[in-house]
């Protein structure tokens, strides 16, 4: 625990190092996450991410080759439901939450794949 905190203290001095951000390819990740940011927000995000990455990067250096990943703590398996219809929602109530709708349909701007759009 102590090591962890000491390392973080010294990393703030390395903030100026842009290496971590280049490696992360921040622009690509932000695009993948569909977040449109103002230039200020982008800059703030960049500096925040460096700090956070420095914390979590330490984990990469540790040799955990012989350890099995833990996906779920409770060890459950075969959790099924029977194939039966259940209660429905009524579209009339639900559509009130929709930013835009036409009758029973949700409505969005026309889906046109453009050059810069990420594919599905």
């Amino acid at each position: 625990m102590a090591n962890q905190i000491n390392i973080i203290m010294s990393s703030t001095e390395n903030q100026k190092k842009k290496l971590a951000v280049d490696q992360i390819d921040l622009k690509k990740t932000v695009k993948l996450a569909y977040l449109s940011l103002t230039p200020t927000e982008s800059e703030q995000l960049e500096s925040d991410i460096i700090k956070i990455l420095n914390t979590i990067d330490k984990l990469r250096a540790i040799d955990l080759a012989t350890v099995e990943p833990l996906y779920q703590v409770n060890g459950f398996f075969n959790r099924f439901r029977e194939d039966q219809k259940g209660d429905h929602l009524q579209i009339q109530t639900v559509i009130e939450n929709a930013p835009d709708a036409l009758g029973r349909f949700f409505r969005v701007p026309l889906v046109v794949e453009k050059e810069g759009d990420l594919e599905q």
Binding site: Q84, G86, D87, H88, L89, I91, V94, G103, R104, F105
Partner: peptide, 16 residues
């Protein structure tokens, strides 16, 4: 989920 699977229903009928 337990929403129904059926065809020919009006739009957004089989929803939960």
């Amino acid at each position: 989920s337990a929403a129904e699977v059926s065809f020919g229903k009006e739009a957004n009928f089989n929803i939960d």
